[in-house]
């Protein structure tokens, strides 16, 4: 899988957690808390979904590395088995 694939997966799970977000309008640098309004429960649900789908267990200390779709795509590509 490429970085683009991971970005797409991230946005898919993000919009599942927050169905009112239109993924077409989300920019690479949009912050999931400050710009998209996710709260701590939403972020936990997103991390759970990414873990279930990709097997990537994101520790709490690294939540900051998925703070934007751009960062998340890089992070997931780096840490996912499928990205290797």
């Amino acid at each position: 899988m490429t970085e683009t694939d991971f970005r797409a997966i991230f946005l898919e799970e993000l919009t599942r957690v927050a169905p009112d977000i239109d993924s077409a309008t989300v920019g690479d640098d949009d912050h999931i808390q400050d710009d998209l309004g996710l709260d701590s429960m939403d972020i936990l649900n997103l991390v759970v979904a990414l873990h279930e789908r990709l097997g990537v267990n994101i520790p709490e200390a690294e939540y900051i590395e998925i703070a934007t779709p751009g960062l998340a795509a890089l992070y997931l590509a780096r840490n996912s088995v499928a990205g290797a």
């Binding site: 701590s40 429960m41 936990l44 991390v47 873990h51 267990n57 520790p59």
Partner: peptide
């Protein structure tokens, strides 16, 4: 909380709330 969540999978983590 930080210590407890460290070795848990996301689904088992707790929030401060």
């Amino acid at each position: 909380l930080t210590a407890r969540n460290e070795d848990r999978t996301p689904a088992e983590r707790l929030l401060l709330g």
